[in-house]
Simulated assay, not measured.
Amino acid sequence: MDDKDRKHYKWGMFYFNPNNKSIIVPKRLGLGWTLNFAHPISWVIILIIVGFLIYRVASK
Rank of each mutant, 00 (worst) to 15 (best):
T34I: 01
F14W: 06
W43Q: 05
M13L: 08
Y15T: 11
K21T: 10
F16V: 15
L29I: 14
N17Y: 04
P26M: 00
M13T: 11
W43H: 12
Y15D: 05
K27T: 15
V25R: 01
K7D: 06
N19L: 04
D5P: 00
N36D: 05
W11Q: 13
S59P: 03
K4V: 12
D3H: 06
I24W: 01
K21R: 07
K4N: 10
F37W: 08
M13A: 14
V57M: 07
F16Q: 09
Y15S: 07
I45L: 12
G12K: 03
I41T: 11
G32C: 08
V57K: 03
L31C: 10
N20P: 03
D3S: 14
F16S: 15
I49L: 01
P18F: 02
Y9H: 01
H39T: 08
F37P: 05
N19P: 08
K27W: 11
S42D: 04
H39K: 05
I49S: 05
M13F: 08
A38M: 02
N17S: 04
G32E: 06
L47G: 14
L29E: 10
R28P: 04
W43R: 09
M13C: 15
V44S: 01
K27E: 07
Y55M: 12
Y55P: 03
N36V: 11
L35V: 09
